[in-house]
Design a protein around this nucleic acid. Structure first.
Lengths: 181, 181
DNA sequence: TGATGTCTATCTATCAGTAGGTAGGCAACA
DNA sequence: TGTTGCCTACCTACTGATAGATAGACATCA
């Protein structure tokens, strides 16, 4: 089945938002990307908050699908898999996690978008916490929060510094610190 | 000595950028904030990259001045002082760390701004690393990177979630994890 | 079968508002 | 007199959003 126009717009929007931010992403740019006019983008997403909400919802769903593929039996393999998801989401000079961008812009963003962003972070923490509890490591909650925050923050520091190794350093340190938290 | 107009503009700009982002901050808004016209703002900061660079430079200098006030002899007191700086920088629904915002927008920002943002992160890591080394804790570098990333990321997650306690949870977990990293 | 109505997805054209930036003038002050 | 700091007035480009039209698909009904 070929992509629907709605899906094409979301793909283009994700790319732009993850590299330039939500506010900097315009309906005209997206229209150009997919080969229609900006008025037609408004047909699919009446307002910008509508677009933002759909974008984060879709991102979280895809992320969840990837999480569900990770086996939980081997603690270290699972943690490696988790970090790989973040690592793949971070391409130097191209993109960082959609929700890191949305989170940083949060204060000026519509409430419906922030709610979806919050849900993304909760999804991640819940998955991690379940994994840690299953293996009797840490107290669960705190370690999970720390890891998610460190990975998101690590992406931002590494992106601003134009140095991918900074993200990898943070990711490794986060894993190594587990158990003592 | 009363504030110079340049200083007033920087204060207004910092407030706006930290709550709404750099791209969303306009010369007109700033002019309005300080009671002059936008053309006059251009007199002090010819272009937007000029403004951004001055903004981050000033922020880093002020942060460094605060860091220098923290005594290094007591490890835990020093860590508490460090985290307080971040904690004070984070006011729910009002502002997060300037460099968290700049870092998240980094890909679409002028290079001179990114360089200053990078310098801010390096400043923080160097201070932390020196503290940890002095007390023979951790291997220094990795733990310092993890803490900075976690604090920046913690602010973003907490801001998007509209829940300040998330930041505090991350901050505590980051400190507790020290030594094992 | 053919006419009628409705829905989808797009178009053109336009709106008011705002963006960053510039030219040139004016007044205070060293 | 020259510099500083601000002004008015303007420019071009772009923003999100809307109105109104249209072509084609499909379904209902005489």
């Amino acid at each position: 089945m070929p992509l629907t126009m709605k899906e094409k717009i979301l793909i283009a929007a994700e790319k732009r938002v993850r590299s330039a931010g939500f506010t900097e992403t315009s309906f005209r740019d997206l229209a150009n990307d997919v080969g229609i006019k900006s008025a037609s983008v408004h047909y699919h997403f009446p307002t910008k908050p509508d677009l933002g909400e759909a974008l984060v919802t879709r991102y979280a769903e895809q992320f969840k699908a990837e999480l569900d593929k990770i086996g939980l039996d081997d603690l270290h393999a699972a943690l490696d898999g988790f970090i790989s998801l973040y690592s793949n989401a971070f391409v130097l000079n191209e993109s960082i996690c959609l929700c890191a961008v949305m989170g940083a812009e949060a204060i000026g963003l519509p409430e419906n978008v922030n709610q979806r962003t919050k849900a993304f972070f909760e999804l991640n923490k819940a998955w991690l916490e379940a994994l840690l509890v299953k293996h009797g490591v840490g107290d669960g909650g705190d370690a999970a929060s720390l890891i998610v925050a460190a990975l998101e923050g690590g992406m931002i520091v590494a992106s601003a510094s134009n140095d991918r190794s900074l993200f990898e350093q943070v990711a490794k340190a986060a894993i190594r610190g587990i158990g003592s938290i």
